[in-house]
Amino acid sequence: AQSRGKEGLNRLRFVVDGEGNVLSFELVSKSGNAALDRATLEMIRRAQPLPKPPADMLVNGSIEIVAPFVYSIDKRRR
């Protein structure tokens, strides 16, 4: 996608337990580019386990997070 100049933003909802294990995940908004959306899903699959969340943020032993993923190409010349 980067080599083709593709940019976009999607949002990923994921649930993490107290040990940093991802219990579930889904795209809640898509970028409009299937390659970028696949990259986000692959990232969360490979990133496990995540760092343990603070215990005081857990609700019933887990935390739900909705995070934006921004794919942007800096077009400035260096």
Rank of each mutant, 00 (worst) to 15 (best):
Val22Gly: 12
Val22His: 08
Val22Pro: 14
Val22Lys: 07
Leu23Val: 04
Leu23Glu: 12
Leu23Met: 13
Leu23Pro: 03
Leu23Ala: 03
Leu23Phe: 03
Leu23Tyr: 05
Ser24His: 07
Ser24Gly: 08
Phe25Gln: 11
Phe25His: 15
Phe25Met: 04
Glu26Asp: 14
Glu26Ile: 01
Leu27Cys: 02
Leu27Trp: 04
Leu27Phe: 03
Leu27Asp: 01
Val28Phe: 03
Val28Gly: 01
Val28Tyr: 04
Ser29Asn: 06
Ser29Asp: 05
Lys30Trp: 02
Lys30Phe: 10
Ser31Pro: 02
Gly32Leu: 12
Gly32Tyr: 07
Gly32Glu: 07
Gly32Thr: 09
Asn33Thr: 10
Asn33Arg: 06
Asn33Phe: 08
Ala34Thr: 13
Ala34Asp: 11
Ala35Tyr: 05
Leu36Cys: 06
Leu36Lys: 06
Leu36Trp: 02
Asp37Phe: 08
Asp37Asn: 13
Arg38Asp: 12
Arg38Gly: 04
Arg38Val: 07
Arg38Leu: 09
Arg38His: 07
Ala39Gln: 11
Ala39Leu: 11
Ala39Met: 09
Ala39Glu: 15
Thr40Glu: 01
Thr40His: 00
Thr40Cys: 03
Thr40Arg: 00
Leu41Tyr: 02
Leu41Val: 04
Leu41Arg: 04
Leu41Phe: 04
Glu42Asp: 10
Glu42Ala: 15
Glu42Cys: 00
Glu42Thr: 09
Glu42Phe: 05
Met43Leu: 09
Met43Lys: 06
Met43Pro: 00
Ile44Ala: 06
Ile44Trp: 01
Arg45Val: 06
Arg45Pro: 00
Arg45His: 05
Arg45Lys: 15
Arg45Asn: 09
Arg46Ser: 11
Arg46Ile: 05
Arg46Ala: 11
Arg46Asp: 13
Ala47Ile: 07
Ala47Gln: 05
Gln48Phe: 06
Gln48Glu: 05
Pro49Glu: 08
Pro49Val: 02
Pro49Phe: 09
Pro49His: 10
Pro49Met: 14
Leu50Arg: 07
Leu50Ile: 11
Leu50Asp: 04
Leu50Lys: 11
Pro51Arg: 06
Pro51Ala: 10
Pro51Gln: 06
Pro51Lys: 05
Lys52Tyr: 04
Lys52Phe: 02
Lys52Glu: 13
Lys52Cys: 02
Lys52Val: 02
Lys52Gln: 15
Pro53His: 11
Pro53Gly: 11
Pro53Leu: 07
Pro53Ile: 02
Pro54Tyr: 10
Pro54Phe: 08
Ala55Pro: 05
Ala55Tyr: 01
Asp56Asn: 15
Asp56Phe: 10
Asp56Ala: 14
Asp56Ile: 10
Met57Lys: 14
Met57Phe: 13
Met57Trp: 10
Leu58Glu: 10
Val59Gly: 09
Val59Ala: 15
Val59Asp: 15
Asn60Phe: 12
Asn60Leu: 15
Asn60Pro: 01
Gly61Phe: 08
Gly61Ile: 12
Gly61Leu: 11
Gly61Asn: 15
Ser62Asp: 06
Ile63Thr: 15
Ile63Ala: 15
Glu64Gln: 10
Glu64Asn: 09
Ile65His: 00
Ile65Ser: 01
Ile65Cys: 02
Ile65Gln: 08
Ile65Gly: 01
Val66Tyr: 01
Val66Gln: 04
Val66Asn: 03
Ala67Trp: 04
Ala67Thr: 14
Pro68Gln: 08
Pro68His: 06
Phe69Gly: 02
Phe69Gln: 09
Phe69Arg: 12
Phe69Val: 13
